[in-house]
Amino acid sequence: MHDIRKLNVMENVMDENDHIAEHVREHMGAHGVLIVNEMGAPGVGKTTTLKNIIERLQIAKPFVIEGDIESDLDTKDLNSLGIAAYQINTFGACHLDAPMIDHKIDEMDFDLEDKERGILFIENIGNLVCPAEFTIGEHVLMLIATVTEGSDKPYKYPLAFEKADIILINKVDLIPYLDFDEEFFMKGVRALNKTAPVFKVSGKTGEGYAEVAAWLEGRAAALDIHEHHHGHGDDEHHHHHHE
């Protein structure tokens, strides 16, 4: 009985992650919370961008999960500004995955009033490669590019640009000092992605962020929410604290 048999498997290796991501996306969306997965290389201004957007939100209540390999400096920084920020440390891993987010949102209190909308910003690990490959349950993948990185980035990191739902070009206040070729950059972006809006922003001057905040709030307002009475998330997977 030691015959070798072939078994047809045809199973995606990422299925488990993708199922959990789908659950997170549906669950939070149904409770009026838009999830924004923020992705960008180290030093593009991911935390600065979050601060700038959050300052300009008109209606939605902000929440933040900071993903870092180590340290909680950004979380402390955001908490000191009165922003509800929570930390995930991956201790070496190069991206966040859906199970990490699923566990973290269990610990968080999304105290929204009826019909109120929230936006959960998740700052992914500084990296343009791996975070593009793992969905974490986001409704919106927000890519931060900068004029300082050079205009060839869509050609070198195509997957990140292909998958983005919104693209920010940060540090535009530095354009006079650089040779950023916007036409070449945009040609690459549009070859990969016909639909994502592109916003020019500056973390230094704050320009452009009001438009980004308004776009995200539009997406949050468009969520198909179910009635949420006082709490939220008391389905089979989530047990939040209730007043």
């Binding site: 030691h2 015959d3 070798i4 048999r5 072939k6 078994l7 047809n8 498997v9 045809m10 199973e11 995606n12 290796v13 990422m14 195509p158 292909e162 040609k187 549009r190 070859a191 990969l192 016909k194």
Partner: peptide, 20 residues
């Protein structure tokens, strides 16, 4: 003309296994 992305190259699955 600039080409558009496809799903070709994003595969990641177990096709088959042999067991005994």
């Amino acid at each position: 003309v600039d080409g558009e992305p496809t799903e070709i190259g994003k595969e990641f699955y177990i096709e088959e296994i042999e067991v005994e």
